[in-house]
Design a binder for these strands. Structure first.
Ligand SMILES: Nc1ncnc2c1ncn2[C@@H]1O[C@H](COP(=O)(O)OP(=O)(O)OP(=O)(O)O)[C@@H](O)[C@H]1O
Length: 748
DNA sequence: GGCTTGCGCCGCCCG
DNA sequence: GGCGCAAGCC
């Protein structure tokens, strides 16, 4: 019943009875393993049916994986309540749609739809996007929702610039309601309200769930915490598992306080501590422990390795992001030639744009890879979003945002005029898309009239198809045929931006087909409805089988959470990237945790790279090594030294070679106190001069930059190609640039 | 009404 | 370097 190879602490956690349980443990210590074993244990021990335990995972992929692993160990059982808080909420809300009340086929909208709606609302009240930035409004609404603040409450307590935001919040909610739509936060918020207010529904679930397990508990937000409490029986039948050092979603409202105060908040809680990192070799464990031990305000945990030896953590400095990609590509090929698979390896980075050089380089060198960014790119293609809007409308005819999107796409004579009329109708008397279109046709003449009528008829047919259970592929085909979308695309296809658009349509249809072939009927749900929900909740191909082909993974660190790879390459360990400099504030502690999460994904080998220069948004800047590199103990790293060094690169390479040695000779890095942490990266404001000869003759010169315009040199150091200037540009503040890349014109 | 063109704006992390 | 949007032309 309990796997023999678990250690005593793990076994204790798995078999704990009576009262809430917290497993607070470091990376790779087998927390997820404990969740799975405990799930199986509880089913066996108590003979509970498949739907009596709720397991909450952080991603849907983790949920799939968990179900898969369970069915492998015990083919007879297939837990039916496994998912993210969002998907669990969506499911519960649909089960009780009439009582909430919500239309059963409510639409789940993503961030992009959300932004579009806010833009539409701003346009409606005649406020320009300069006066009110849609993105910050979106963010504000999200914060209000996560704090459980209603539009009325927001309005009552806001003043000044927040006034408009809170008014918009109200309008936005009303618009969602009329359209039968929920955004991500609404899924949680609506469920919280429903459970709070409806005792019957609450008790149904409390009775149903004998136990609730939550993985990655450190990254739950306030609403998710409320849901957990509401679903539990007096906070007793709950197991939570997590690591405060791996809390990396503060930016979207997660609060590490939930895990830290669990023992206080959940009466009688038992806490189990795991300390052995089974995942990684000793050097990786040591390096990661050292780097996280400098974190502030953490729950101090021990992390010990199994003693498994391995190569030191390889540090590598490169000239540019292209050199970085080439270096990683070569390392990957080397590992493959030594017997590893491509799928054993992953490249991790802080932000998606960093994937680009890797994508190009890997393609050129014939290295198979997969990126989430490409998938996202696909779903953000205009033609894909258009077609999905048609599909959404077929399932939920109240979805006027989708109607607005496709009203005149392809062009059918329903332009701005028609749109205005439609707006007016829907405001005076809310109605379905079809009703509105019929109404509109009465108000138009000629071709436009016919178009509106035809669209209404088509819509009716599509709705019927969806209701009768036709799958997404058939309905997509129907719309492609009816609208002539494909031929419109090929006609209007201009040289580059239209490339491959028809292919994307076909790919979308194929996705639908794949989904249908794996679809098993669920009570009361239509396949097209489920397809759309899967899409909304994952932004992933719902037809994806879950088998992993032999490809290298290109992932952001956030995406890599909870995963492990034999070989990991952490790219872009640079100031302003990791840690990332954000416009408003930098949460250096969260950045440190990100670095820690990245390192601890590696089982056997870890290489960390940084670049001297990097092209971001079309301009080349000099880059400095991440301050976090200085926290890695010299005994467990090899390779280049992360110091800010302005000497010519030829010289630098010689020195580095002499120090590092190829075969992994350990060396001791200078103590951080005496080097970078005092006058290096932490002073990215630019007052401090970096090493290298100072070049006073440059200071005070006026220069012209092709982008930034005129500026004055404030500081200069370094020679030849490594001459670095700190220039104060009018209105832009100080920028540090390498003279050789900056294309400067010097005046006077 | 529909299409082109040029300009401004941005820059993250996500269910 | 790429996208969305407003202006301006057919
Ligand atoms: N008792 C054990 N003996 C051997 N290997 C184990 C044991 N427990 C866990 N492992 C292995 O250690 C690795 C990490 O386990 P798991 O993913 O469950 O850790 P985790 O604590 O959830 O990690 P993280 O928090 O970093 O995501 C897995 O490969 C797992 O199979």
């Amino acid at each position: 019943m309990i796997p023999d190879d678990l250690n005593p602490a793990q076994k204790e956690a798995v078999s704990h009875e009576g009262g809430p349980l917290l497993v607070l443990a470091p990376a790779g210590s087998g927390k997820t393993r404990v969740v799975i074993s405990r799930l199986l244990y509880l089913f066996d021990r108590h003979g509970w049916a498949d739907d009596r335990i709720l397991t909450v995972t952080f991603t849907r992929k983790a949920a799939r994986e968990l179900v898969h692993r369970i069915s492998r160990v015990r083919p007879s059982s297939r837990p039916t309540w496994v998912g993210t808080f969002h998907s669990v909420a969506a499911r519960m809300l649909r089960e009780h749609a009439e009582k909430v009340p919500l239309p059963r086929e409510f639409t789940i909208i993503d961030g992009a739809d959300q932004k579009q709606m806010i833009k539409d609302l701003l346009a409606r009240i005649g406020v320009s996007e300069k006066e009110a930035d849609p993105k910050s409004i979106q963010g504000r609404i999200g914060k209000w929702k996560t704090s459980g603040i209603s539009p009325e409450e927001a309005l009552a307590s806001s003043f000044g610039p927040f006034r408009l935001q809170s008014e918009l919040y109200g309008a936005y909610q009303e618009s969602l309601r009329l359209q039968g739509a929920l955004d991500f936060d609404d899924l949680l918020l609506t469920l919280v309200r429903c459970l709070e207010q409806n005792r019957e529904i609450r008790e149904t679930y409390q009775n149903q769930f004998e136990h609730i397990l939550v993985d990655e508990y450190q990254d739950t937000n306030a609403l998710q915490e409320k849901i957990l409490r509401l679903l539990s029986r007096d906070r007793q039948n709950v197991t939570v598992v997590g690591d405060d050092d791996q809390s990396i979603y503060h930016f979207r409202g997660a609060e590490v306080g939930h895990i830290l105060s669990f023992p206080r908040e959940y009466p009688g809680a038992r806490q189990v501590v795991l300390t052995v990192n089974y995942r990684s070799t000793r050097p990786i464990v040591s390096a990661a422990s050292a780097m996280i031990s400098s974190a502030l305000s953490r729950y101090r945990k021990e992390m010990v390795s199994t003693g498994r030896t391995g190569d030191p953590v390889l540090l590598r400095r490169l000239d540019s992001e292209w050199a970085e990609a080439r270096f990683v590509a070569q390392s990957i090929q080397k590992k493959v030639s030594e017997g590893s698979m491509f799928r054993d390896q992953a490249v991790l980075f802080r932000m998606n744009v960093q994937a680009q050089p890797f994508v190009k380089t890997f393609s050129d060198m014939g290295i198979p890879f997969q990126t989430r960014g490409a998938v996202e790119g696909f779903f953000n293609r205009r033609e894909v979003r258009d077609l999905l809007a048609y599909l959404r409308l077929s399932v939920n005819p109240l979805d006027l945002t989708s109607l607005g999107r496709i009203l005149n796409v392809p062009p059918r004579g329903l332009g701005d005029k028609a749109r205005e009329k439609l707006e007016a109708f829907s405001r005076s008397a809310p109605a379905s898309a079809r009703e509105l279109l019929e109404r509109l046709s009465l108000d138009l003449a000629g071709k436009s009239r016919d178009s509106a009528r035809a669209l209404a008829t088509d819509l009716e047919e599509a709705e019927r198809k969806a209701r009768q259970g036709e799958g997404p592929s058939a309905i997509l085909q129907f719309w492609i045929g009816r609208t002539g979308y494909e031929s419109w695309l090929s006609e209007s296809e201009d040289s580059d931006s239209g490339k491959g658009r028809p292919d994307n349509l076909r790919e979308l249809v194929r996705m639908g087909e794949r989904f249908e072939s794996g679809w098993t009927p669920q009570n009361g749900r239509t396949p097209t409805g489920v397809f759309l929900e899967e899409l909304a909740l994952t932004q992933e191909d719902p037809g994806e089988t879950g088998e992993s082909p032999d490809r290298v993974s290109l992932l952001t660190i956030h995406q890599a959470k909870g995963l492990e790879f034999r070989h990991v390459y952490l790219a872009g360990a640079e100031e302003d990237i990791l840690p990332m400099r954000s416009r408003d504030k930098m949460d250096i502690e969260e950045e440190r945790r990100l670095f820690y999460v990245a390192m601890t994904r590696a089982r056997e080998s870890l290489a960390i790279t940084w670049c001297l220069t990097r092209q971001l948004f079309g301009r080349t800047d000099s880059s400095r090594p991440s301050r976090f590199l200085l926290d890695l103990p010299g005994e467990v790293v090899a390779g280049d030294r992360p110091v800010l060094d302005a000497r010519p690169s030829s010289l630098r390479r010689q020195t580095a070679g002499a120090v590092s040695g190829q075969s992994g000779h350990a060396f001791r890095l200078p103590s951080p106190v005496h080097t970078l942490s005092r006058n290096g990266p932490s002073s990215s404001t630019g007052e401090v001069t970096g090493p290298g000869p100072i070049r006073p003759e440059w200071v005070g010169r006026k220069v012209i930059h092709p982008r930034f315009g005129t500026g004055r040199v404030e500081e200069a150091h370094g020679e030849g190609g490594d001459l670095e200037l700190a220039i104060r540009f009018d209105g832009l503040g100080i920028r540090r640039l390498l003279e050789r890349y900056a294309n400067l014109r010097v005046e006077g």
